[in-house]
């Protein structure tokens, strides 16, 4: 499988000394629907902004569809569409004009049929000729999506495209992205809606504190890294000090619940008994005990907690 994007040793230290990326390596397969996840401040947007050419990297290399991103910017930019996280719009023009201008700046004569389709699919047709200042927040965000797609890019990067977009619209937006993906467009997205990522994406990478924690297929992550968790529920909130005594089970506290990770040994037996015994020894008898299969959110929280320094 060829890679749409290969990132090697990418670092970025901002002028104020903040280290946003400390050597990220990442490969995004061509044609994939790729989720890039991480808590706030993990470095996701910095990575995307470097790809979009709005931030300069400190060091590192990026190959885009087999071309060097930094030395062949024009070639790469013509095939890349980016939806930025922060809402931005041109206050001087209406959406239809903005799309024509965007297309022109990419060196593409505006394809009116495609612009109409974009406006229609993103439910902006009614507002196409109003000034962008009159659009609501959700509409402006959809306009950003349309702007990123207007030159028909091979790779689309969406940095939290659904923040502030209502459920129904979000579903339709994802439906549209799925169609594009089915037609061969590689899609990389960041989102805080992990359920959506789990449902949509076939690949996932998790970054935290500027480092890559894992990158693999969604199935692979949920099967190998994702395990099951023992959940003990207590009458009162679980004290944080207990975490240090249960480190063998990668514990995580959520108010009055504690989650312990269950791992399988070579013979396929998991360590349920050991975890259970350890927990009641440290915390006492629980009110209720259950076992949950980890979903993406659990894996995400566990991995990012484990690597908290």
């Amino acid at each position: 499988m060829t890679a749409a994007l290969t990132v090697q040793g990418l670092t970025k230290t901002y002028k104020n000394g903040k280290k946003a990326l400390s050597g990220v390596d990442l490969s995004v397969p061509e044609g994939s629907f790729f989720a890039l996840l991480g808590p706030n401040g993990a470095g996701k947007s910095t990575l995307i902004n470097i790809l979009a050419d709005t931030v300069k990297p400190s060091s590192g290399q990026v190959s885009f569809l087999g071309h060097d991103l930094f030395s062949e910017r024009r070639w790469c930019k013509q095939r890349l569409g980016v939806v930025p996280q922060e809402i931005a719009f041109d206050p001087f023009f209406a959406p239809r004009d903005i799309l024509k201008i965007m297309s022109g700046m990419f060196g593409v004569k505006p394809d009116i049929a495609w612009i109409d389709e974009l406006l229609n699919r993103l439910e902006l047709s009614e507002h196409a000729d109003k000034n962008a200042r009159q659009l609501s927040g959700g509409m402006r965000r959809r306009l950003l999506v349309a702007q990123a797609l207007v030159h028909k890019p091979k790779v689309v990067i969406l940095d939290e495209p659904t923040a502030g977009v209502d459920v129904e619209l979000r579903k339709r937006l994802w439906g549209f992205m799925r169609e594009l993906n089915a037609n061969g467009t590689t899609i990389l997205l960041t989102t805080h809606y992990l359920e959506e990522a789990e449902e949509l994406c076939d690949h996932v990478a998790i970054i935290n504190q500027g480092k890559l924690l894992t990158s693999q297929s969604m199935k692979g992550l949920l099967n190998t890294v994702g395990s099951s968790a023992l959940v003990l529920e207590y009458a009162e909130d679980v004290a944080n000090e207990s975490l240090s005594k249960l480190t063998a089970f990668s514990p995580r506290i959520d108010a009055n619940k504690i989650f312990l990770c269950l791992k399988k040994d070579a013979s396929g037996q998991n360590n349920f008994n050991a975890a259970y015994q350890a927990a009641i020894q440290v915390l006492g008898e629980a009110q209720s005990v259950s076992v949950q299969n980890e979903d993406l959110e659990d894996v995400f929280l566990r991995l990012t907690n484990e690597h908290q320094s």
Binding site: T54, D90, P91, M102, M105
Partner: peptide
């Protein structure tokens, strides 16, 4: 200036213009 304040200069930077 407006581009900076409205965060809209990013479109210029993302476009394949030298």
């Amino acid at each position: 200036m407006v581009g900076k304040l409205m965060n809209m200069q990013i479109f210029l930077m993302m476009a394949p213009l030298t």
